[in-house]
Simulated assay, not measured.
Amino acid sequence: MILNGVHVLVTRPEHQAENLSCLIKQRGGIAVRFPTLEIVPLDDVEPIKTTLENLDSVHWVIFISANAVNFALKANGGKIRFMESVRFAAVGQSTALAMKIAGLPVDLVPEAGYNSEALLAMPQLQQVEGQNFLIVRGEGGREQLATTLRSRGATVNYLEVYKRIIPRIDNSPVVELLEQHRLDVITVTSAEALQNLHFMLGERNNELLSLIPLVVVSDRIRRIAADIGFNRITVTDKPIDTAILETVITCVTGE
């Protein structure tokens, strides 16, 4: 029981929080679920269907996340028709797994790393002049992948298949833990989730929040957290639940 009853805030979307929460419980901690993002489908799915049924001129389809895979499938009746001329890429291993479960080929996934930079470093994406890319993602998001591919001579279009909203949930259990100094570690897996956390708990609680050890999954989120005012920030080795758990344990035990 390494975590010995410490309270760990889990900010993952509700449908993605179960595994990390169970891992925390198995190691003796108390997972405090407080989703700061909700992932929902777009109101109009017809453009998604039209795009996915007409991939003839596309050379590469890149899925940004497992959510991108799953919401694309939902919008298109549970399947994506593909031809041998289309290659499919995943930003990371979780995305690749979602693609395999969906019956899609995974032609390219970074050997190391779980972000756009790692994918862009792959040899297959160095010489892409004249090729057409379709990036499947949620509304908004980072532009680096498209910007870099365009700088290499590719044509890039987006297919947005979901949107992120701020959940409407009661914040009083978390505020109470904050005020009682019983919230021990915070876990955050995206910059937007971190920013929403600040908003959802209210300005008067932000100072207390900033004193709690924060576990994040990338150096980019670490920099944003530091700008917001967090003082004790640790970055995981990988953006996966087991790595998040091990980092939480390190924060709590110092080992």
Rank of each mutant, 00 (worst) to 15 (best):
M1S: 05
I2Y: 04
N4L: 12
V8N: 00
V10Y: 00
V10W: 15
V10H: 08
T11H: 04
R12I: 08
E14V: 14
Q16V: 02
E18Y: 06
N19V: 09
L20K: 07
S21C: 08
K25D: 12
G29L: 04
F34W: 13
L37P: 09
V45H: 08
V45P: 12
E46Y: 04
I48P: 15
T51N: 04
D56G: 03
S57K: 08
V58D: 06
V61C: 08
I62M: 08
S65V: 10
S65K: 07
A68Q: 12
N70H: 14
N70I: 07
F71C: 04
K74I: 13
A75D: 01
G77E: 01
R81A: 05
S85G: 12
F88T: 03
A89I: 11
V91R: 11
G92A: 04
T95L: 12
A96T: 13
P105I: 01
V106Q: 05
L108C: 15
L108M: 14
A112N: 15
G113W: 07
S116I: 14
A118V: 05
M122T: 12
L125Q: 11
V128T: 10
E129P: 11
N132D: 06
L134D: 10
V136A: 08
V136L: 13
R137W: 09
E139A: 03
G140E: 02
G141V: 15
G141S: 06
E143T: 04
L149K: 11
L149F: 02
A154L: 09
T155G: 06
Y158N: 08
Y158P: 05
L159N: 08
E160G: 03
Y162P: 09
K163M: 05
I166H: 13
P173D: 07
E176F: 02
H181C: 05
H181N: 07
L183M: 01
V185D: 01
V185C: 15
I186C: 14
S190N: 15
N196L: 10
H198R: 13
R204P: 10
R204C: 05
N205I: 14
E207Y: 12
S210N: 14
P213S: 14
P213Q: 00
L214V: 10
V215T: 08
S218R: 02
D219R: 02
I221P: 11
I224F: 15
A226V: 00
D227H: 15
I228M: 11
N231K: 03
I233R: 07
I233K: 01
D237S: 14
K238E: 10
D241E: 13
D241V: 02
E246M: 11
T250R: 04
C251F: 00
C251R: 02
V252T: 09
